[in-house]
Each structure stands twice: as C-alpha cells, then as structure tokens.
Design a binder for these strands. Structure first.
Lengths: 332, 332
DNA sequence: CCACAGGATGTAAGGGCTTACAATCGGCCT
DNA sequence: AGGCCGATTGTAAGCCCTTACATCCTGTGG
C-alpha cells in the first residue's frame, strides 16, 4: 500500500493525497473525503521513513538518560512524552547505564535518525560529546550539563542550595558524623550533588566528620555502599544519599544490621520519587519537580509548543527539603 | 553530508561507499580504508530513513507494554534491549498506560515505522488489535495474549499454577479470609491472575471468604484499594496482590492503619521485582523470570538471533513461590 | 602473449513521500 | 460573452540510500 495506490483509487494525484494527509489548506472538502475514504478502504498507513526523508523533518524527540530504572528519569520521560503527545510528537528513550560508550552510540543513533530534537539528562556527558551534539544541528536541551562556551538552553538545579538545606537540617538535629552514599559517574569529575556535599560539609563549623562511599545507581548499590561504610568502622549518625533510589537500599542494609532508622541513623534521599513515601520509614528527601523538567524540555525543543520562546532560556530549579520519617535527632 | 559527498571525496562511486558501510564482501582493502577515511573526515552519518527506505528493512524492534513504570515491564525491556544490542538492533518502547486508544495509536506508529518486529505485553489487548498486528505482516510475539486462531509465537505464564501455589501456601498458614488487590485492565474481561485467584479460592474446601478490590497499577493504587477494602468492614487475614508494584502500597496502607504485616495481615505480591526484597517487610511473591522473557522475545523476533528457531514455538513459564517476610500464620 | 574467470567497481533504477511550480478550474466582473 | 483571479489539482524533481546488472580490471592457465 503506497501513496500511489491511494491516489489511483481516489482518482487524484499523489500530491493531493499528500496534502490531505498533512492537512494542508486548499483541498476541496469533497476531494478530501474521497481521499480519506480511499485511505481507510485500503487500510493505508504512510511510510514514516519515506515521509521524513522527503520532508526533511521527523516528529520524534529523543531522550537520553543515564538510568531509566531510576524513577527519577522515568518521571521526566513521562512528562516529556505527555507534553510531546499533545503536539503530535513521539519520544524515544535511550538509557546509557552510565556507560560512555553507550552514550556515544546512542547519540549516533539519534543523529542518524534525524530526530526533531533531543533532551539530554546524563551526568556522565563530557564537553566533547555535548559539543558534538550541539554542532550536529539538532535542537538540543540539557539538564545539568557541564557548561560550554556556546550552549543551548540548559535546565539546571541548584544542587548547592539543596544540599545546603539538607546538611543544615541534619546539623540542626545534632548530627556531627555524616556519610554520603553516591553513585559512580564516569566522566563528570564528581557528581554535582556529591561535590556540593563535600564543599558544604568541609566548611561547616564546628567541624563535621564525614566519609564518602559510592556504588551503582540502584537499591542494591545503596546497600553495598552502606555495607562497605559500616565495615570500615565509621559510624555515621546520618547518611546523605545522592538519590532516593539508592536510599532505599541504604535503609534496607541499616535495618538488616540491626540499626534503627532514624533511631540510630538518619537517612536522607534526593529527588522525592513517588516510592520515597511508600518505604518504611518514609524518606526525608529533596524534591525536584520532575514533571516540570520534562514539560519544559518539550517547550524548549518543539517550536509549536505553547511555552516555546525561541530564546535559549536557562532555567534554574531549587530543590525543596521534604521532611518525613527517616530523619531524627542524632543519638547522643 | 550525504553518501555522494563521501563517494566524491574518496574518489569512488556511491555503490562502493554503500558496500563498505554495510560491510559487503568484495571491496579491496585499500578502497575500503580510503572510504572509511572519507567517512571520518567528513564526520558522515548515514541517514537511517533513507537507509531503511531503500533497503526495505529496519533494525529496530518495538516493545509495547502496559505500564513502563512497573519494574516488571522495565526489566523485560532491559533484557530485550540487551539481547537486541548484541544483534545490532535497537528497541523502542511504548507504554499504553492501559488506555486502549494509546495502544491503537502506538501500534499505528510502529507499523508506520516498518519495525523489524514487535513484542507485545499488554493485558488490555483484544483479539481485534492482536489480529490486526499479526496481519500487518510484521514479526510479532505476544506475552500472555488472548488466544487467536492463527497465532504467532506466544509466551505464556502458567498463572493458574502460580496462583494455586500462593493460595495453598496461605491456606496452609491458616488463612480463611482473603482479599485480592488487582488493577484495572480495560478489555481483557478479568485480569488472568485475578480470574485464577477467584477460581481457586471459590472451589477451596473448607470454604474461604474473599473480596476483590481494584485500582491503578501503582503503589498508590494498592494503597487506595486497601483503604477501600478496610473501609468496607471486610477484615482479611491475607491480601493477595496482582503484582509487587501494587503490593508496596498495600503494605504501606496496612501499616498506616496500625496493622502489622504479617502479624495482623499477610501480603503476597507477584513478579518478584527487585524492589520486593528491599521493602520492610520483604515481600513474599511469585517469581516470573523477566529476563528470560525478554531474551526469548528477541530470539523469536530476530532471524539472526542465536536462539531463533523459525517455528512459532509456544513457551510456558511457571511462577515459583518465594517466601519472605510479609506472610505468616493467620492471627486467630 | 591471449583468452578467461572472477573480483572490484560503476551505473542507474528505484523505494514512498513532499513540494515548488505549472496547469486548470470555477466564478466574478464589466 | 470575454477576461481576470484565486482556489484546486497535477507534474515532476528531488530526499539519500541500496542493489541488480553492466563494466572493467587483475591474475592465471595454456
């Protein structure tokens, strides 16, 4: 079934069929309906490849994330997809799993596919790849990317302020021995959240003791990091986690070692994923408005979007501290 | 940058460039490297649309799931993607959210994109849509689809046996008042797991009391269903959940209402998602080998796959009961 | 030294669609 | 009725690749 078949059946030219399929103006209603009938009669479905090849544009957005298993990314994906759907766009995701090679190859695929735009949320991206993306000509938007000279719109979270709120809150509860559980990120020298934790904790007075442990971005990673931490003999009264996903495993391991949360050890997460209020105890965390991030990305990428400004606006999000049950006063 | 540019730069014809790009045999090594050099010099990337249009085949698999937020589907996606990657294939997912309209439109998109094959795991699919898919000519594989006359390979789980094991286990612990928490599925008359629960419980002797409550496929859905259940005055000593994802919310609500798990109420899940051993208490559940499902789907779909037989083999998986901490003897 | 078999390339015809530009059409005016 | 104009529709040139088929080498055997 091709355009020609439809044209023949409707007794018009392929141009006309194409016009009604793309609802272009100036097609007489009678003609339009005749074509539409032929289309349904033949159960015709345009070939997307031919379409974008000829038209030069696709209606597909790409989303590049580090770890789709982490609900944080999944939520952004959802928001982006919903926003895209209202604009008749699709979105394809690629999860790099923090592996630079996967990142590079995913970028290749997306470029080869001439996507309408691409949203990038991978902490492991370096200036090189980011630059390559920007210069490829595709509309691009980054979330928390390393800053380049000539940058496209960037959505950033003020992790410094967020982390500051978290640490201050814990200090206020009397915690003086902290640990940070992070995840391995390949290229970005230090995970931004981790870097700010170190910076803030290091300059706190009276001085705070602290320790860092990293593992995979998963509950199991959180558990392993915690196990290593405790095995080292360091006894934090509070553990700050790079995100909720890992915090789930941190809490699990603590409980398994007979430590009460927050009785013996307080735990904080980051992101405020849905799951964080279903754990026992519920997680104290820092909220990041993921839906807003996804929607904004769509606005920035798609010209037809209602919120599209055209200007490469930078947007900054400040995490809010959400206190729940996993934190309490430090055990003396 | 097009094939022509590369050809011109390398001083060969486009046919030759195409040959080296698809590593066809019979290209002199010297020529090959000359072309390769031109490719990297020009930073050339073949246009996928032109490629599949001309070649008539794409190397992209489609995966259609009900709810990508549920780790059950996510795990299958991962397995499928890994398997596909080794065969130089990509996979794009579409999540229907149990909305039939989304299902239909996703199928359209996938057909329009002339995918290399499509894997379907949506409980809400009906014979009509399934048939349409099968007749579209694309290789298709279903997981737990309603049976059709002329069916493509189907992977099925023996939910009857699984549910039987679960109910027998609970009966053995003395439970006589059970509840089932399921999720809304639009078309499949009754969710298969739910149907088997009812069937098994109804014919148990001595008779069992039971009640069904459904909501969304999410922790929040589990919580709401449980709230409704308890509000109705029915006091189950055990709650069987359609899946782990919802069970998380069920446990949460129980705890919030001051009920101990499993002290006052036992809870079972289904799927054995990773998260199920990170909750407190850890969930007793029925394991479904998700990785195997994903891998098998790839084998069935891609001719080059190592496990590809060609024959439309039907595969049946039997869920294994995994006893953990969320179940115990019934409170007398 | 010549004819030949292959191997290595080039030629060109699509693949299914969009779209600039040309050709028609109908209706209005005077 | 003749002429003019905008609304419709058709024509055909691509978009960028793959591939069947034709052509041109090369080395080999005789």
């Amino acid at each position: 079934m091709t355009l020609d078949d439809v044209a023949r059946r409707a007794g018009v030219s392929t141009a006309t069929v194409s016009r009604v399929l793309n609802d272009a103006p100036s097609v007489r209603p009678a003609t339009r309906s005749r074509v539409l009938k032929a289309v349904t009669d033949l159960n015709y479905l345009p070939n997307e490849h031919a379409r974008t090849l000829a038209g030069g544009r696709s209606r597909v957005l790409g989303l590049l994330v580090s770890n789709i298993e982490n609900p944080f990314f999944l939520d952004i994906y959802h928001a982006l997809e919903d926003a895209a759907r209202t604009l008749a766009h699709e979105v394809v995701v690629a999860s790099t799993g923090y592996v630079p090679e996967h990142l590079a190859s995913s970028i290749q695929h997306m470029r080869a596919r001439r996507l309408a735009g691409i949203a990038v949320i991978v902490s492991e991206i370096d200036a090189d790849l980011a630059g390559q993306l920007v210069h490829s000509g595709m509309p691009t938007v980054f979330y928390d990317a390393p800053r380049l000279d000539r940058m496209p719109p960037n959505i950033a979270a003020d992790y410094r302020t967020g982390m500051h709120r978290c640490v201050e809150y814990l200090r206020g509860l009397g915690h003086r021995r902290l640990a940070f559980v992070g995840h391995h990120t390949s290229l970005y020298p230090l995970n931004a959240r981790q870097a700010h934790f170190v910076e803030i904790v290091a300059k706190a007075r009276p001085a705070l003791e602290y320790r860092i442990e990293t593992s995979d971005d998963s509950p199991e990673g959180g558990r392993l990091a915690t196990r290593a931490l405790l095995a080292s003999g360091f006894r934090p009264t509070a553990i700050v986690c790079v995100n909720d996903f890992m915090a789930i495993g941190v809490v699990r391991e603590l409980l398994d070692q007979g430590l009460g949360v927050p009785r013996d050890v307080s735990v904080t997460g980051f992101d405020n994923i849905g799951l964080s209020s279903y754990t026992s105890p519920r997680l104290t965390t820092l909220d990041i408005p993921r839906a807003r991030i996804g929607t904004t990305m769509c606005d920035l990428l798609v010209p037809e979007a209602p919120g599209h400004t055209g200007r490469p606006t930078d947007i900054v999000i400040t995490p809010e501290l959400i206190v729940r049950e996993s934190t309490g006063v430090a055990r003396s």
